[in-house]
C-alpha cells in the first residue's frame, strides 16, 4: 500500500514539475509550486517523516507561496520567451543527472532495513533517547538535543534572512503615514471572510501554541509553531489592513523579538556552560539530567518559535508595505 501511494505521488510530482517548466504564466507557476509542496508533504507523510511533512506543508505550500504571490504583484505576471536554445543548460543537466543515476547503482535498496544508514548512528537515537533525553518524539530529541547546535544555526539562518529582507525592502515613514490616511485594505469588503476569520484567528493561535509545546510528544515544535502563528497574523493582515496589524506588531519590536529568540537559544547554551557542562549540554540545567533535558528543549524551542514567528511576520510586512508603496509611486 505504501509503495503504491509512493509511486502515485511521485508520478503527480513529475507532472507538476514538468508543468512548472512548461508554463509561462507565473501565477500558474507559483500555484503549481504550491501544489508541488503540498504533494511533497504528502509524500513525506507516506515515508514516515511526519515532522518534515508538517513543516513542508506550512512553509512550502504556505509561506513560500504567499511570498511568491506578493512579489508577483510587484513584478508582473508573464514570463517572456527565452531567445536562445539552451543547449548548454541541457548538457549540464544531463551530465549531472547521469552522475546521479550512476551513483544510485550501488545504493542499498529503497526501504531496506539493512542499509548502512540504519546501522551506525541512528540506532542509539531510537534505543537510548528515552533514557537519555526522555522525549518520545525522537525527531525532537535529535533536533533539539543531540544535534541542537544545527538547530541553533538554522535559527540563525532565519534571522539572517530577516536582516537581508529588511535591508532590501525598507519603506520610509512617509509611505506609512500616507497609508494611514487612506482607504480600507484590499479585501476589507469581504464581510463573510472577515467574520469567519474573526472566529478562526483565536483557534489558529491556540493551535500554534499547542504545536509549540506539544512537540515533545507528537509532530511539531518551535519552527512549525512559529510559522502557524505567523500565518494567523498574516491572515488577519490581509483582511483587516496593514495599519491595524502593525499597530499591534510594530516593526522594531518584531526585530527585537527575532533577536531575542536567537539570544534565548544561545543563552541557554551559555547557561549550560556556566553550570559546568559543555555548550548546550542541558543535563546540568537541573539536578536530574532528564529533567534538565526537558527544560533545555522547552527553552530552545521557545527561542526558535519566537524568532521564526517574528521573522515570518516581518518578511510578510515588508513585502506588503512594498506593494502599498508602489501604489503611491504610481500616483505621484
Amino acid at each position: 500500500m505504501e509503495t503504491l501511494i509512493d509511486i502515485v505521488l511521485l508520478g503527480f510530482l513529475v507532472l507538476t514539475a514538468l508543468a512548472v517548466a512548461k508554463m509561462h504564466d507565473l501565477f500558474a507557476v507559483v500555484m503549481l509550486s504550491g501544489i508541488y509542496s503540498l504533494l511533497s508533504a504528502s509524500l513525506f507523510l507516506d515515508l514516515d517523516a511526519v515532522d518534515v511533512a508538517f513543516t513542508e506543508a506550512s512553509v512550502g505550500a504556505g509561506i513560500s507561496t504567499l511570498l511568491m504571490l506578493a512579489s508577483l504583484k510587484l513584478v508582473g505576471r508573464f514570463e517572456k520567451r527565452t531567445r536562445y536554445r539552451p543547449m548548454l543548460a541541457l548538457g549540464v543537466v544531463l551530465a549531472t543527472g547521469t552522475l546521479l543515476i550512476y551513483g544510485t547503482l550501488d545504493m542499498p535498496h529503497f526501504g531496506s532495513a539493512e542499509a548502512p544508514v540504519h546501522q551506525h548512528v541512528a540506532p542509539r537515537y531510537l534505543n537510548d533517547s528515552m533514557e537519555e533525553v526522555g522525549v518520545p518524539n525522537v525527531v525532537t530529541s535529535v533536533l533539539a538535543s543531540y544535534r541542537g547546535y544545527d538547530t541553533l544555526g538554522e535559527t540563525l539562518v532565519v534571522f539572517t534572512a530577516a536582516i537581508g529582507v529588511i535591508s532590501l525592502l525598507r519603506v520610509s515613514r512617509r509611505t506609512k503615514e500616507e497609508e494611514k490616511q487612506k482607504t480600507p485594505a484590499d479585501m476589507q469588503q469581504q464581510i463573510i471572510l472577515r467574520v469567519v476569520v474573526k472566529w478562526l484567528l483565536p483557534l489558529i493561535l491556540i493551535f500554534a501554541l499547542y504545536v509549540q509545546f506539544h512537540g515533545d510528544y507528537g509532530p511539531g515544535g518551535g519552527f512549525q509553531a512559529g510559522v502557524i502563528f505567523a500565518a494567523g497574523i498574516i491572515l488577519y493582515t490581509m483582511l483587516f489592513g496593514l495599519n491595524n496589524a502593525s499597530r499591534v506588531f510594530q516593526p522594531e519590536h518584531l526585530e527585537r523579538i527575532a533577536a531575542l529568540g536567537v539570544l534565548l537559544y544561545a543563552g541557554v547554551g551559555i547557561g549550560c556552560m556556566v553550570l559546568g557542562g559543555n555548550f548546550l549540554d542541558y543535563n546540568g540545567l537541573s539536578h536530574d539530567p532528564v529533567h534538565g533535558q526537558h527544560l533545555g528543549i522547552l527553552l530552545v524551542e521557545l527561542g526558535v518559535g519566537l524568532t521564526v514567528a517574528s521573522v515570518m511576520i516581518t518578511i510578510f510586512f515588508k513585502f506588503t508595505w512594498r506593494t502599498v508603496k508602489h501604489k503611491y509611486v504610481k500616483k505621484r
Binding site: F159, R256, V262, L263, A266
Partner: peptide, 17 residues
C-alpha cells in the same frame, strides 16, 4: 573552540538591540 563562534553569534542579534 565554541566561544570562537558563539561570541560573534551572540554579537549579531545584540546589534539589533
Amino acid at each position: 573552540p565554541i566561544l570562537q563562534v558563539v561570541v560573534p553569534l551572540l554579537g549579531a542579534p545584540l546589534c539589533i538591540l
